[in-house]
């Protein structure tokens, strides 16, 4: 059963990649453009830290790890499950009919049926940022991979959860935009600038700290607290998003929009 679904997923990803590579110039422009974009965005931190040695213990090096994790996880998710930011649009336009009419898990198929090539640029930048951070001990690399998986899972299912509200509130595209803005913005700043109330909010309600700062701290030094926070956050959010999407699906009314997707 699992093997069959994985074969299907790999077939989807292969088709997405082949489709994107058809237009070579556009393909390369998007990848290199995203690397340049991230590089320019990160330029803020060297400028900032040229005026301050550290922000309550956080240095430029820590920001490199944060940037590596967020770029890496965002890149993987937008490349493999690029529809996560368009779920509201699909539901509101009645295009779920297409996914419902096929004998495949609806959510998995929906998420994986779009791929953003620019995600490859994010992945490349993530690798460069990590190499610059100098945290190369084997256990740190393992913790980085774990952190990226958790960060990506939280990103994917937080957005799935927010967009799934479309089943109840109508088109939640704007809410999705707000959600992704909040998640990315708060995740790319050091945890030490937030007070305890803000930290609580940014772990429980908009889990941005679980996407950036907490995995970065975990890469630097192992802690049971970090491991539990990250694992629990990813598990709870995954379960919640799948439950809400599945329940919402029962409320979905067909838009009579069965069509061939090319």
């Amino acid at each position: 059963m699992l093997k069959r679904e994985l074969t299907f997923l790999f077939a989807l990803w292969r088709a997405n990649l082949q489709g994107a590579m058809e237009f070579r110039v556009s393909f390369l422009l998007q990848i290199f453009g995203m690397v340049a974009n991230n590089l320019l965005y990160f330029a803020f931190w060297p400028v900032f830290f040229s005026h301050f040695d550290d922000i309550h213990g956080w240095t430029l090096n820590d920001m490199l790890i944060v940037m590596a994790i967020v770029s890496f996880s965002w890149g993987i998710m937008t490349f493999l499950f690029g529809n996560f930011n368009f779920i509201s649009e699909v539901i509101a336009n009645g295009r779920l009919d297409y996914y419902l009419s096929l004998p495949r898990p609806v959510l998995t198929h929906l998420l994986a049926s779009r791929s953003n090539v620019s995600g490859l640029g994010d992945i490349a930048f993530g690798v460069v940022a990590y190499l610059l951070s100098g945290q190369f001990q084997p256990e740190q690399i393992l913790r980085l991979l774990f952190g990226v998986c958790i960060s990506g899972t939280i990103l994917l299912f937080f957005m799935t959860l927010v967009h799934s509200l479309t089943f109840w509130v109508g088109n939640a595209t704007e809410l999705g935009n707000l959600g992704v803005n909040a998640l990315l913005t708060f995740s790319l700043y050091p945890i030490t600038i937030f007070d305890n109330t803000a930290r609580f909010f940014l772990i429980i309600f908009v889990p941005a700290l679980l996407v950036g700062s907490v995995p970065a701290q975990f890469v630097k030094a192992f802690s049971w607290q970090g491991l539990v926070q990250l694992s629990l956050g990813a598990l709870v959010l995954t379960a919640l998003a799948i439950t809400v999407f599945t329940r919402g699906l029962r409320r979905y009314e067909s838009g009579s929009a069965i069509q061939v997707e090319v």
Partner: peptide, 17 residues
């Protein structure tokens, strides 16, 4: 070039810094 999104991203980040 047909595809311009990469130019948009770079322009935006140039404005940022």
């Amino acid at each position: 070039t047909e595809e311009i999104s990469s130019f948009e991203w770079i322009f935006q980040k140039a404005l940022f810094i």
